[in-house]
């Protein structure tokens, strides 16, 4: 079943697909497996292109940026840590950073875990690799039932990478409404994550 906004509620199929993608990514990391990379490419390249065209790129630029992203996936696969992110999350962050490098003069600084000032996660939460996987299933579940007005904003933000101001003027609603709908949406997803299994 596909909801109007494209987050399916079919958790089992999604789980199987996620696991397959993760296996492929690990195979690329560990053995430079060409076939595994081709499968990743077949899965992600067309979707990355869709995402980049949504951002307003021409088809050619979008394929260029997609190729740069997939090249980074190929080169940096050994940095993928399945306990911290799913394959699709990891590839999303690479695509985002490639886009920022390309289109932006501004930097997006990130915390550095090797920094002596870095405060690590509690061991209690750090060790719960399995719970991270359950988290993703819960996030999917919560997203599949978000009201359309909240989902629209989430998609414009993540998918079209629009700023809050751009969303506000495009939907012709006040900036405060954009922000409060976001807070509502994240509140629901967080509540779902806090349900104890």
């Amino acid at each position: 079943m596909t909801s109007a906004d494209g987050i399916r509620q079919d958790a089992a199929a999604d789980k199987a697909r996620s696991e397959e993608l993760e296996r492929d990514l690990l195979a690329v990391a560990n053995t430079r497996d060409l076939q595994a990379f081709k499968r990743l490419f077949a899965n992600f390249a067309p979707r990355l292109k869709f995402f980049l065209v949504k951002r307003g790129m021409t088809e050619n630029t979008a394929e260029d940026v997609m190729q740069e992203t997939m090249l980074k996936v190929w080169r940096k696969a050994m940095l993928f840590d399945g306990t911290k992110a799913s394959a699709s999350t990891w590839i999303y962050t690479i695509a985002r950073n490639v886009r920022i490098d390309r289109l932006r003069k501004e930097l997006r600084p990130e915390p550095d875990p090797n920094d002596p000032c870095f405060v690590p996660d509690d061991p209690e939460t750090g060790e719960q690799a399995m719970s991270r996987k359950q988290d993703r299933e819960r996030i999917r579940k919560a997203m599949s039932v978000l009201p359309p007005d909240q989902m629209t904003i989430i998609k414009m933000s993540f998918f079209e990478e629009k700023s809050h101001g751009e969303i506000s003027s495009e939907l012709n609603i006040p900036l405060g409404t954009v922000k409060s709908r976001m807070r509502l949406a994240f509140g629901k997803i967080r509540a779902e994550l806090e349900v104890t299994s």
Partner: peptide, 26 residues
Amino acid sequence: AMMEDMAGLLLMESEPAELLAAEKSL
């Protein structure tokens, strides 16, 4: 991490666009 997971889900669920030069890219 939660927000990036949401974005990753949206990426995986999006409709694939047709590639002009898939073989060349690979």
